[in-house]
Amino acid sequence: MFDVELLIKQSRAYLAFGEQIRRFTEQFPSDPQPTDWDTALRQHFDRFKAMVAQSSEDSNLNPDLAQLWTLTLESWQQAASSLGISAIASRAGPSADAWQVYQQILGEYFELLRQSAMTALDLMEKRLRDRAVAGEAAGSLRELFNLWVDCNEETYGRMLRGAEYSELSGRLLNALLGCRASGETTP
């Protein structure tokens, strides 16, 4: 049946996104000079990227905002849980090595996703700038959110199709299975 949790999480993420955009628009009088806007847009996206970077280091910092770009990772963690590998004991012995290998590869995977999210913000900034030059304005917050989704799908899609992702996602699953095979799990 329908998982209401998914709806709630993504709604919160959308609200966090809206709050980011609202803060950006709050800085301006009704008709700012183009150069002011240009500078502010750059500064805002720099802050946005800094927050994404921070949320990768501390997931409690802004979990709703982090939810925007950690969808794949969270989905992966759920899949890993379904294999009974959610609670892996970090006990000594040979099996601890398998766990360490998995954690290291998970870190690489996380970094690849984070880079993709950063590139998506660069792309969104560029698209907004192009729109401004063309005299086009967004009509709603949802339109901006959809632009953000498009930019993420574009950068994520490029990453997904790359050899690095194919190799890394394979290693990630193999490492997870390695933990399970070495019995390094708790029920």
Binding site: G18, I21, R22, R23, F24, T25, E26, S30, L128, A137, A138, G139, S140, L141, L144
Partner: peptide, 8 residues
């Protein structure tokens, strides 16, 4: 962007 803080 074309949106005000109030509108958002």
């Amino acid at each position: 962007i074309g949106l005000t803080s109030e509108r958002i």
